[in-house]
């Protein structure tokens, strides 16, 4: 879920932008030109996922797919999500220029965390149940942490946002389940059909 322009306090916006810039720099450090087309596909997938809305009461949360992006790309998820989020801002006005940093951080940091927590699952020798567990947990966890970070950004702006922030986190619950299932199903399919996509990016 994106935070709109004008809501957050300047401190939160600046902090988000600085941390996101550091993450993007880390992701770009050893980025080879020939990886860019494949990263573009994941970036496009991330963009399209945000168009699939899951209505939850008054708010509508959408799919994030940051678990899958993070699992495959690690730190490279930062530039991928930055580009996806900036296209969302330009084409659909989901977020804007000043919130780009916070929105990138909120979605990309959970992706990187899940990469380190669950990348063991992508090894070819992992058994099928363990593989399903790791990929489901990655999708579920990345959406959960993203929801919490969105809520936390609102809370840091002002105490008055606390009830709204809690509702945002609660609204992510169905999204987490769908994300987990979708990530596991996609990864399972890729493992069967095109395992090198999961291993090609796998950085030791």
């Amino acid at each position: 879920m994106h935070i709109s322009e004008g809501v957050l306090s300047p401190t939160v916006l600046l902090g988000g932008a600085v941390l996101a810039a550091a993450g993007v720099a880390a992701g770009m450090k050893d980025l080879d030109q020939k990886e860019i087309p494949s990263m573009g596909i994941l970036s496009a997938a991330f963009f399209v996922a945000s168009l699939m809305h899951v209505p939850v009461g008054p708010v509508s949360a959408h799919l994030i797919l940051n678990g899958l992006v993070g699992l495959i790309l690690g730190w490279k998820a930062f530039p991928v999500i930055l580009v996806g989020a900036s296209l969302q801002a330009l084409l659909f006005q989901f977020g804007g220029i000043t919130t780009l940093g916070v929105n990138t951080l909120n979605m990309a940091l959970p992706a990187v965390m899940c990469h380190y927590a669950f990348r063991w699952g992508l090894k070819p020798q992992t058994s099928r149940p363990a593989f399903i567990f790791a990929t489901f947990a990655s999708g579920f966890g990345a959406a959960m942490i993203a929801g919490i970070m969105v809520g936390f950004s609102l809370y840091l702006t002002g105490e008055a946002f606390l009830p709204a922030a809690k509702l945002v986190v609660a609204a992510h619950l169905p999204v987490m389940l769908i994300e987990g299932g979708l990530t596991a199903a996609c990864a399972l399919f890729l493992r069967k059909v095109r395992p090198e996509l999961l291993e090609g990016f796998y950085a030791p």
Binding site: M28, Q33, A44, V48, G84
Partner: peptide, 20 residues
């Protein structure tokens, strides 16, 4: 803006249409 980010931006924009 770094060249690689701009490249990624172009590829992504192009691939959104390809994926569709």
């Amino acid at each position: 803006v770094p060249q690689k980010i701009v490249h990624l931006f172009f590829f992504t924009y192009r691939y959104i249409h390809v994926m569709h």
